[in-house]
């Protein structure tokens, strides 16, 4: 039997380890009649940014990797990280990214040394206010001190002259709890719930498309993959790819739903006005253009990839 050691960098009790990776592993063992076994170590064996490097280096065989950490080489997958590309529906986002990958990226922008098993996209982030006034315009947001996720989210606020506080998401709890900031943005509701920052928010402003949707690649090292017979490879792919997008998306939507139940009980929920969304789209434009240029330079049909992604998200979210 081939053993796939799959590493989950989330804490061991996290739903991404228990309900996504482990569930996938069981499916793989089932469809290959246990000719392929999946083992998940009890604790992550490498820091989150080093997942791809560790698979290539042979530390373990398969892993999730946050696409933001590998954006310089997996440019295509970063389409899902663009501001206002994804929606609140993790299943729609994940399915759309897999479809985009198959249609435009698998050949033009493969990740060297690994075989892609699946892609998944978290539900998007909203704007949380910790003052009496909800965030309803760009001025309202940039006039206050916000915690923002490092990367595009923090950059977008910074370019408007906002005094942003940023840092790794796991360290945001203390910043929010200590009242250093008047709001926060960049993480999905389920993360906000698990980081214990929801009780500090007074209102949340929801947008249709989200300022940030964390997305992840799920891959197995090429050497390990090539050890597996073609028949078993096909069997594994039947529970990966599209099926994996649905599995991960459903689990994430379930968690997100629970977090939103908490939010609705605790704070005011405001839907962003069309004017606010248009303003935000304007802020996002340079980042979208930047990605289009970068992806095109790598030989990706960037316009088409972006269209497939956003189009599929729109089509599936509407369902």
């Amino acid at each position: 039997a081939t053993r796939i050691v799959a590493n989950c960098f989330f804490p061991a009790q996290h739903f991404n380890c228990r309900d996504v990776m482990a569930a996938w592993g069981e499916e793989v063992e089932r469809v290959t009649d246990r000719r392929v076994r999946v083992n998940i170590p009890a604790k992550s064996m490498a820091p989150p940014p080093e997942q791809l490097a560790s698979v290539r280096g042979g530390v373990f065989d398969a892993a999730f990797q946050f696409n933001g950490f590998i954006a310089n080489e997996a440019t295509g997958g970063a389409v899902s990280l663009l501001p206002f590309s994804g929606s609140a529906d993790a299943r729609a986002n994940s399915f759309a990214l897999w479809r985009t990958w198959e249609a435009h990226l698998a050949d033009a922008d493969p990740i060297e040394g690994v075989h892609m098993l699946g892609l998944f996209v978290a539900p998007g982030a909203d704007f949380y206010s910790m003052t009496d006034t909800p965030i309803t315009s760009v001025d309202e947001m940039t006039g206050r001190k916000m915690w923002a996720l490092p990367g595009v989210t923090a950059e977008m606020l910074k370019q408007e002259g906002s005094p942003v506080v940023s840092g790794p998401a796991v360290q945001m709890t203390e910043i929010v709890q200590r009242g250093v900031v008047d709001g926060f943005v960049g993480i999905p509701a389920s993360d906000a719930a698990s980081f214990n920052v929801l009780p500090y928010a007074t209102s949340v402003t929801r947008t249709g498309r989200k300022i940030f949707t964390p997305s992840f690649s799920f891959f197995v090292g090429e050497e390990t993959w090539n050890e597996i017979s073609a028949e078993d490879q096909a069997a594994i792919m039947s529970v990966s790819g599209e099926a994996f997008a649905e599995l991960a998306g459903d689990v994430w939507n379930r968690e997100e739903g629970a977090a939103w139940a908490e939010i609705e009980a605790e704070m005011e929920v405001v839907d962003a006005s069309d004017a606010f969304e248009a303003e935000l789209d304007g802020l996002a434009r340079p980042f979208v253009d930047g990605w289009l240029a970068e992806a095109a330079a790598k030989g990706i049909d960037a316009e088409a990839a972006l269209e497939t992604y956003t189009g599929t998200v729109a089509e599936l979210s509407a369902e």
Partner: peptide, 12 residues
């Protein structure tokens, strides 16, 4: 060496 080769920068 790996960080130099891939031009890695710190997150914040």
């Amino acid at each position: 060496y790996e960080a130099w080769r891939t031009d890695r920068t710190t997150i914040v």
